[in-house]
Structure formats: C-alpha cells, structure tokens
Amino acid sequence: MLLVPCPNCGPRNQSDLRLLGAAVPRPNPNTATRAEWGEYLYLRENPADWLQETWYCRAGCRTYFTLERHQATNEFRNPPMPGDKVGNSTYTTITVGSSGKQAGANEGDRK
C-alpha cells in the first residue's frame, strides 16, 4: 500500500485515492480527428520511468490533481502543496463534476 501525498490531506493510504492514469489533455471535440480521439481514449504513456498522473482523492478532499510518480519504484517526486502554482493552475478545491480545466492537468515546472 502506497502513501500518496495528497496536496490537501497530506499522506493518505492508496486505497483512499483512485489513480486515473497518465494525465493527458482532452482534444477539442469540434476539431479532433478519429485518430486523435482514439489516442485520447486509449493511448497512455507507459514508461518504466517518471510519469505525471491524475489522482482523485475519493475518500478525502475529493479533488483531482496530478502527481509525478516513478513507474518502477513507486516514488513520488516534488508533491505539490495546497496553494502551489503548478503551470497555470493552482491546487485549490475543484468541485467534482465541474466542467473546465482540471487543476494541474497541464505539465508545468515544479517548484
């Protein structure tokens, strides 16, 4: 069982969170081609290396956020803290199901 560093709740048991896989931007539904949709739906980076992933803190703060985890060693790198600026987004509470951009879904430089 991993201890996952939730930016709001601190270290939580892995069972409190859900891993949604590598963080990928959603293509524009008006312009995306079939191949792009196929790629968005099914293709995910699967390196034995560091990877930005989307997590959902389902039993805690119920926010979505990205964390960088090494896929072979399961270490986390530079976990964000509440209020951190990551890329153009800030880790604050995101209501589940709200439309719009997910916090931290874009890959920016980590502090």
Partner: peptide
C-alpha cells in the same frame, strides 16, 4: 493491483 506499476513487490493488502 489497481496501481499501474512495473514494481513486482508484494503487498500486505
């Protein structure tokens, strides 16, 4: 295991 990983360590859970 629900976690995608290349690690083959066993877990207590």
């Amino acid at each position: 295991d629900p976690l995608a990983t290349y690690s083959m360590r066993g877990s207590l859970s």
